[in-house]
Write a protein that binds this DNA or RNA. Structure first.
Lengths: 196, 196
DNA sequence: CCTACCGATCGGTAGG
DNA sequence: CCTACCGATCGGTAGG
């Protein structure tokens, strides 16, 4: 489903971006050097520049690919005919699946976006704000229709998105629980807290 | 209540640590230079070393001060005679208050601990694991006493801690909501999701 | 894809 | 507290 995965059809540039995501997640963007990245790819550092323009371009590619995936999904869910509860559940499950499928990329987009230079930084923040607003609108619709309890919609969005982000630390020290259990537990906790 | 605040009784070292927390939060640890920090303090870079030993020592001081505050509070709550629900609520409220009172420090401890060198890194992770275990034990006690619904306790801990951490992004672009509203909304959402 | 190398900046020290 | 300066490492280029 995603351009993030690296199959046999991937170019050298894709490989470099994939390795960069892994390196940036482990060490942070600023603390990662192009020499280390070159080692992971299996070439000398200057050779990287035959495929990419700069270090910052790698961060941009990672952050924007992730942002596009999330925006694409929310766009589809937004105007569906299902209940607000069902739509929010779909958003939660999508976040959890993205985290499990594209851990490095999502982690980097969540942690290292601050290192983006302008205009990429402001554009990224703009996209995120808009994403949160759409989610808040769905929750407000649910409150108006008495489906949800009367909570501040933006606080609820924050609570949900942050909780889901926490899977990061889960994925670092994998406990013995299946993806299904994880999803169902989290959906139950967050959705029951919302439901009337 | 906390050694984090910088009042009139603070030494130059305290001032440096406080400014470092602010700088590290804004730019990240690795991307912050000692020259920038010196500028904020109002001295030349080499003068910093009359008060501190190294850049990494600053990160250690910030992370450990925060960790000690949280551990101290949880230690007090842990064996209190109150209901599990009440104890979890106290933990949630403490996290929110810490975030509001010592934003820079908590943010840095949450985001930059990975840049700690060993043995500080493993010690920090050990403390955090132990903190989560104590919270999970309280939740399990609540499940056993039928106070809470039957959720995986470690997933619930993760959900709660992550949601509370999300206040970070709230504090960056302050919306018009009071501390009390924020706390009450979040406690209601998270606790109602837990309660039977 | 490599070797050779650049200017800039880093954390930190010496010496006063 | 400063000036002067160190070795190391950085992102990136030239040239083949």
């Amino acid at each position: 489903m995603s351009k993030i995965r690296t199959g046999q059809g991937s170019s050298k540039k894709d490989v470099i971006i994939k390795k960069a995501a892994s390196l940036f997640r482990q060490k942070g963007y600023a603390a990662s050097s192009m020499r280390e990245l070159a080692d992971l790819v299996g070439v000398e550092a200057p050779s990287l520049y035959n495929h990419i323009g700069s270090k910052s371009e790698l961060l941009q590619a990672i952050c924007y690919t992730v942002a596009n995936e999330f925006n694409g999904h929310l766009g589809k869910v937004k105007n569906s005919k299902e209940s607000c509860s069902k739509r929010i559940e779909q958003v939660i499950r999508f976040h959890i699946e993205m985290m499990l499928e594209s851990f490095d990329e999502v982690y980097v987009a969540n942690h290292e976006w601050k290192q983006l230079g302008d205009p990429f930084l402001s554009n990224f923040l703009q996209q995120r704000r808009s994403y949160e607003n759409v989610m808040a609108a769905i929750i407000e619709e649910g409150i108006a229709s008495k489906e949800f309890r009367k909570l501040h919609s933006h606080v609820a969005v924050l609570t949900i998105l942050s909780a889901v982000r926490g899977l990061e630390s889960w994925l670092r020290h994998r406990k013995n629980i299946s993806k299904e259990d994880l999803e169902n537990n989290m959906v139950e906790h967050l959705l029951n807290g919302l439901n009337k």
